[in-house]
Amino acid sequence: MRYGAADVLNGVAFQVRQGEVVALLGPNGAGKTTTIEILEGFRMRSAGRVEVLGADPAHGDERWRDRVGVVLQSWRDHGKWRVRELLGHLGSYYTRPWGTDELIETVGLTGHADKKIKALSGGQRRRLDVAIGIVGRPDVLFLDEPTVGFDPQARQDFHGLVRRLADDATTILLTTHDLGEAEKLADRIVILAGGRIIADGPAAALARRIAGEDEVRWVCGGERHVVSTGDSTAFVRELFGRHGEDVRELEVRRASLEDTYLALVREHEGTDR
């Protein structure tokens, strides 16, 4: 993607499998939103090949749109509609929509189904945004900062919904600045910086790439032990096989996604200088 003489995206290449949840991460200006908009068919790319559900999004027809769901960072329309009315109306455009009341219950708006949208709180409005995005039971769902404004309970409920959708073979691509959310939800992490992909893989694999080995700490026989290992699961299994219940205060420390993300972005910024 090029604006004038500046490349906003260059050589970005990745695939997402059916039912996979992929988090697209990166600092502001990295090209995340541009990437998502190209995949959604809302922005025309300058060059390259893009395919979503077997079609070029730039030329997606109504049948293609019927299979795609989008949750934008915010919606600012439909304020005079009531929740149930709007979702019922939008569902009528799809071939296999959710039942309206089932969808309202799924996103936690049952008690607000007859409210006008302009009367909803910020968190309730965000739940409605999600409902609008999934009303057609999409095969591919794009989520742009989906839990902004959610309280902890709403965020937990939404995470459960994402996993249920993925279990039902919905493919999900999400952007978020909440790295804990990405680590919890995503099967795979794709990190963009400077318009290029600098990392792609499961969070644990990316952490090993940066941090190397896990650190295992425990107490046995009154003595404290610390060991670094590339396979903490196998090590702990062997440890309990040798010492059983004598193992106390076991702790396994792995690099978090936040540690990994910051290290990769700093590394990229260093090579760009």
Rank of each mutant, 00 (worst) to 15 (best):
Y3M: 07
G4D: 10
V8M: 05
L9S: 09
L9P: 07
N10T: 09
A23E: 03
T35V: 05
L39D: 03
E40F: 11
L53T: 09
A58V: 04
D61L: 01
D66G: 06
S74Y: 10
D77H: 14
W81T: 01
R84D: 13
L86K: 04
Y94V: 06
T100V: 15
E105H: 12
L109R: 12
A113R: 15
K116Y: 04
S121M: 01
S121G: 04
R126F: 06
A131R: 07
D139F: 01
T147S: 15
G149E: 07
Q153T: 10
L161S: 04
V162I: 11
R164G: 05
R164C: 05
H177Y: 10
L179I: 08
L179E: 06
G180I: 04
A182D: 07
E183H: 06
D187N: 12
I189N: 04
V190R: 00
V190G: 00
R196L: 09
I197R: 05
A199S: 08
D200A: 06
R208L: 10
E215W: 03
W218E: 00
V219F: 02
G221Y: 08
G221L: 07
E223H: 13
A234Q: 11
V236G: 00
E238R: 12
E238L: 03
F240K: 05
R242E: 13
H243D: 07
E251A: 15
E251F: 11
E258S: 13
V265L: 09
E267A: 12
T271V: 13
D272T: 14
R273A: 14
R273P: 08
